[in-house]
Amino acid sequence: MNIFRLGGDMLHVVSIFLLLLKIQTSHSCAGLSLKTQILYMVVFSTRYLDLFFTKPWHSALTFYNTIMKILFLSSSAYTIYLMQKRYKHTYDKVHDTFRIQYLIAAAAVLALIFHLRLTVFEILWAFSVFLESVAILPQLFLLQETGEVENITSHYIFCLGGYRTLYIFNWVWRYFTEHRRNQWLAWGCGTVQTLIYADFFYYYILSRKQGKKLRLP
């Protein structure tokens, strides 16, 4: 555990907290993409299968990871519940039309081609890494469709982007401090994911400066 990894994880927790805070205080999930939340749920539930096999008390790190994994899974399920049941009437279904089946199919194909070992567990793990790298796209697509970027929604995306950026620093740090197998799959996908956020921030800041609606290319 290094400061970048811990900082990244904390930003991830803050982003989830912000999301739930927005929904609960405004009694609305307007501007939020249910499809992105569903993709995160799929990502977490295919990646954290090791919860069934790992003893949480094996080490301090596995204990920390177990707590965080349960937190991500449960908060993700709760967010979907809020959007689909309690505040269903505020959900912007008309604009949230990104076809996530293509993202899921593409991630599945890539995972079948690129994985570290030929096991169900490894292929699902690779699938989750590929899918996570594009999971924010429906949310960005929705922002583009409505043109409105609420402060709290942008804070949510900023935190996620910050979390990904800190993970890159974490990988650089680990590359030089640990002598273990390089994780090209996670690094590659993580970098793509961070670039998507960077691209969003660029256009977000540009649209703020010009006082115009957000336009993504």
Binding site: R5, D50, T62
Partner: peptide, 10 residues
């Protein structure tokens, strides 16, 4: 064999 670094991340 050495373990993968990414497996102990989130």
């Amino acid at each position: 064999p050495p373990e993968d670094t990414a497996k102990d991340e989130l």
